[in-house]
């Protein structure tokens, strides 16, 4: 792993103080499922690690005043098993359940998934669809940012784990006629990173015959996780019809630019992104009792 010191602070304050004292030479570690390998392969170097696992205040899921709050240290296993998340943010429960294996889900955290900043990180895609807000403790105090603004490039987060602590994510409790869905294509059902993943949040109108609003997040379609805003624009206000879906799929094809990679060709990823988008929308619409016309 290659580091000289390992801290296990008991409070957030203690953690941020350790980071400050070490002036860039200490880095946060959550579950370590990404970081331990990166340290071993020397893709990341640090003198000291600051482990957040004793910080109870960063762990857990609560619901208050129309907001669901998920601590950054909450594990994928906890999220996948949470009644609140399964019922009110299905996209996130399914994304968390799809990660790695039981061994990885028991340790890996939602905060680590986001700060690791991979374009198809599963819970990250779900949080983008949910338009989650991240609460971050910085040197200037606590700030709030939309998750979509946290990615600078492949593997590059706007959060600096040597001086800032991601505390929690807030998502709006879903209102009436709102539903979500997650779709994922991978070579196997376990221990396989996604070839394509898609998260959808949508709201239908009063008569359940139109899309009132929709958010679509996908990976890996660019160096960072992306929202398909042009596709969203086509769907907003449009009637629940097959032809509308076909139109949306055609627009999606133009707005994403995946790469050829070992996991699949750019062509294949584009085609499958369209299919998964359709499936995700159908699942969410069906959840609300809506139906797609011709």
């Amino acid at each position: 792993m290659n580091c000289e010191k390992y801290y296990l602070p008991a409070t957030v304050e203690e953690a941020i103080n350790i980071l400050r004292e070490n002036q860039g030479n200490a880095r946060l570690i959550a579950g370590g499922t990404d970081l331990v390998l990166q340290l071993r392969e020397r893709k990341i170097n640090t003198k000291a690690l600051v482990d957040l696992s004793a910080l109870k205040e960063l762990n857990g899921i609560t619901e208050n005043n129309g907001w669901i709050t998920i601590g950054s240290m909450t594990t994928h296993q906890q999220i996948a098993a949470s009644g609140i998340i399964r019922e009110k943010a299905r996209v996130l429960a399914e994304a968390a359940q799809s990660i790695g294996s039981p061994q990885i889900r028991n340790v890996g955290t939602i905060g680590g998934n986001v700060v690791n900043a991979q374009p198809a990180a599963d819970t990250t895609i779900a949080l983008m669809a949910l338009d989650a807000r991240a609460r971050i403790l910085t040197n200037q105090g606590e700030i709030t940012k939309p998750v979509g603004e946290l990615f600078l490039g492949a593997g590059q987060s706007a959060i600096d784990p040597t001086s800032e602590i991601l505390l929690a994510f807030d998502i709006k409790t879903p209102g009436a006629r709102e539903a979500t869905a997650f779709m994922r294509l991978a070579k196997r059902k376990a221990l396989a990173l996604p070839i394509v993943n898609v998260g959808v949040w949508l709201k239908l109108d009063q008569t359940l015959s139109k899309f009132e609003d929709i958010r679509i997040a996908l990976g890996p379609m660019a160096p960072v996780p992306v929202r398909a805003t042009n596709t969203e624009a086509v769907l907003k206000g449009a009637p629940l019809q097959q032809t509308v879906l076909l139109q949306a799929m055609a627009v999606l094809e133009k707005e994403i630019s995946p790469r050829d990679s070992l996991r699949g060709s750019a062509f294949y990823k584009k085609e499958m992104a369209k299919v998964l988008l359709k499936r995700a929308i159908l699942v969410a619409v069906k959840d609300l009792g809506g139906e797609l016309g011709e």
């Binding site: 792993m1 570690i29 331990v36 296993q77 061994q103 028991n106 340790v107």
Partner: peptide, 15 residues
């Protein structure tokens, strides 16, 4: 680890 299966090769011992 406290009853939960974990991959001990990516787990810092101090955890």
């Amino acid at each position: 680890l406290d009853g939960q299966p974990v991959a001990s090769c990516v787990l810092p011992a101090l955890k």
